[in-house]
Design a protein around this nucleic acid. Structure first.
Lengths: 182, 182
DNA sequence: TGCCACATGTAAGATGTTACATGATTCT
DNA sequence: AGAATCATGTAACATCTTACATGTGGCA
């Protein structure tokens, strides 16, 4: 019995919002939770098949109106909802972190100082862009979803992105000062 | 030709500081860069063997004075230093992030609210402990390493941990307020 | 014409985790 | 007596990444 780890829970979670095709699930994972969660595309279809076997989801075949082709629209079952809830209620596992920028800074004495400075500068720009996206997303939320039971949870995740981004931008600036003192 | 990804660079980085046994490398990765980088124990010895094959490291066998047993003390070669430097100078890859706590918050409407509150509370305590460790580590640095060329880089990584922790603690507090409004 | 979005899937190979095997010494 | 630290390694399995295969319809 393959477990497919947490991939299946990200799928079940997305299906808890609405019925979706595999393709849409991939897009939602990228667009909605991309900054804090990712799945490989190659994992989604096998994981969906496994979820069907386990009785967590069902699907019906529909004809795509965009492309003349049969598509599978998946729905979460009560059993799937139960599995999702049980998982949500369990203590989250702290996932292994791999921050390549910090690793390179840590070993920075072996590199050209200007390259490390470049990495940090680049990262700062990236996160400034990301921060704008978070803020925009937060501004866009209220109008459409103020009454949704998901509202406070989605706001909370966006707040996390905003606070983390602001902290990292401040770190970049501080670090550029430290590394500039040569 | 197996690549062993970035595992070999974390090894080469550690060996750039001093000669080490495989066991010591595992410990250093855990103790010195644990919060932002991790390697599986089972990967280190095969990766070291690969590094020897690639000519990035050499080793000499010594008798352990702690335990009567032969141990392999690895050293980085000039070729290994060159490989490390080239890697450090390349743009860091943004690694896939998997923050299970945020995923659970995002899907929080499917869970018991009190469980999500518990997860956030637990996380806050964890990070408060972590923050103390960062601060202590930073206080301990100057006395021994003020003149080391690594000093500013190690300070920078610690600063990152401190700022990120403070931001996450603030987020936890804010989120507990949001989730408490029922 | 060429690219993008839609849509599902497979295969190969790289990478990662976990547990196990071995065994001495030191500390409680 | 039992646990922790030192020390090296292997095997089995799980998981992840990447590329590929296939094809329609809309847009520039």
């Amino acid at each position: 019995m393959k477990d497919r780890g947490r991939t299946k829970y990200s799928i079940l979670g997305m299906l808890s919002f609405e019925d979706l095709t595999g393709y849409q699930i991939i897009k939602m994972i990228k667009n909605c939770i991309g900054p804090f969660w990712s799945e490989s595309e190659g994992q989604i279809y096998p994981a969906l098949a496994q979820c069907v076997k386990d009785g967590f989801v069902t699907f019906k075949e529909e004809i795509s109106n965009k492309v003349k082709r049969i598509k599978k629209v998946y729905s979460i079952t009560p059993k799937g909802k139960k599995a999702l809830k049980e998982w949500l209620n369990k203590e989250p596992q702290t996932t292994t972190v791999r921050n390549e920028l910090l690793l390179k800074v840590f070993f920075g004495n072996n590199a050209n100082n200007k390259d490390i400075v470049h990495h940090v500068t680049h990262r700062q720009k990236q996160i400034e862009t990301q921060l704008k996206l978070y803020k925009k997303a937060k501004d866009d939320l209220p109008s459409s979803l103020k009454n949704s039971p998901h509202f406070k949870f989605w706001t909370a995740t966006l707040n996390c992105g905003i606070k983390a981004s602001q902290a990292e931008i401040a770190w970049c600036k501080e670090t550029l000062t430290i590394l500039g003192e040569d």
